[in-house]
């Protein structure tokens, strides 16, 4: 009889990825509601120090799944390792943080069990001992409640920000069990991770950011946003499509693949607010959105919004701000 919750702990060279703690927090909430024990799993060639670190959290057990072939992350290696662990534990539920690393191997893991993941969930709730997962669809425009009907295990991933890392409850010291897992042939060879030229612009220190998205329509129109940024004393930033089109350099990109910022004022011009963008800026102090689409997800997190044409609003806003600043 399948029982318990497995939660996958991600790390790079033994350094914890904090999103894993959000998955632990999610697992603890579901564990309490379902009255199921939690087993945290650390995978690596020598992750015993991290396993001890995780044992401080309120989980029943930590498994340190080791194999020399797991020294570097590869999808082949991690899939084999986690398949071994999941088969051994026979859990009801397998939870993972929705990171780039998990996205790379977890669908392959689920497929070994004839399944898909319920991926990128923003929350989960329990009613009558069955779980409902909620995930965003259509680039954040709608929410969908997803339920699992089949045999366990159920595989699900939590989006960064679904829970807070500090929600993960500490415990009395869980037992750590080291096991050696079977890992087959690894077909891909990784090189060392690297950063592209040192980021020229550090937007994380900016007080005010004016960010542009697809709604700006052309590179020439950036001047409009530049003038507003100048009036505000702000840094200029962008959502991914703008940097993909090379209208602004990639070191101006906000979001999961770019920078994460939390300025006191964030002005989003023509940005619809895809999840990948929101995770990079949702902790900003005051958020302003100007967008012609009233359904744009950016309005869900905005303090002030203008539904309308940014080409009309921005020049007026720039002039008004100049007036206010000139007067004070």
């Amino acid at each position: 009889m399948s029982n318990g919750i497995v939660v996958f702990i991600e790390h790079r060279n033994g350094v914890l990825n904090k999103t894993s703690l959000e998955a632990v927090a999610g697992a603890q909430l579901l564990g309490s509601a379902l009255q199921q024990e939690i087993t945290a799993v650390v995978v690596g060639s020598d992750a015993s120090a991290l396993a001890q670190e995780i044992a401080a959290y309120d989980v029943a057990k930590v498994i340190n799944a080791g194999n020399a072939k797991l020294v570097d992350y590869t999808p082949d290696g991690y899939t084999d390792a986690m398949e071994h662990v999941v088969k051994q534990l026979d859990p009801h539920l397998v939870l993972l943080p929705h990171t780039y690393l998990v996205r790379d191997f977890a669908p392959k893991l689920a497929a070994r069990f004839g399944k898909s993941l319920i991926s990128d969930c923003i929350r989960a709730g329990v009613a009558d001992s069955s779980i409902t997962f909620t995930r965003r669809i259509f680039l954040g425009k709608l929410d969908a409640d997803v339920v699992s009907d089949g045999e366990p295990p159920v595989f699900a991933t939590f989006q960064s920000g679904a829970y807070r890392p500090d929600q993960a409850r500490k415990g009395n010291g869980a037992a750590v069990e080291g096991i050696t897992v079977d890992v087959g042939e690894i077909r891909m060879t990784p090189e060392a991770p690297f950063q592209e030229v040192k980021q020229a612009v550090d937007l994380s220190k900016a007080d005010i950011i004016v960010a542009v998205g697809r709604g700006i329509k052309s590179k020439d129109n950036l001047a409009l946003a530049e003038k507003l940024a100048e009036a505000l004393g702000a840094d200029l930033a962008a959502s991914r499509p703008i940097c993909d089109a090379e209208w602004l350099p990639i070191d101006r990109q906000i979001g999961s693949s770019g920078q994460t910022v939390a300025p006191k004022l964030y002005v989003a011009l023509g940005i619809s607010g895809a999840i990948q963008h929101l995770v990079g800026m949702k902790n900003s102090g005051t958020i302003v959105a100007i967008n012609k689409d009233p359904e744009a997800p950016i309005f869900d997190i905005a303090d002030y919004g203008i539904v309308g044409d940014l080409f009309e609003a921005v020049p007026v806003l720039t002039e008004e701000i100049k007036k206010i600043k000139g007067a004070s």
Partner: peptide, 26 residues
């Protein structure tokens, strides 16, 4: 299917947004 969508709906707002201008962007 081992998973299915039970319900689709508009996202819950996490913030109360003040919408300004009432359709007049300026």
């Amino acid at each position: 299917a081992h998973q299915r969508i039970a319900r689709v709906y508009l996202p819950q707002k996490s913030k109360q947004t003040q919408l300004l201008g009432n359709g007049d962007a300026k």
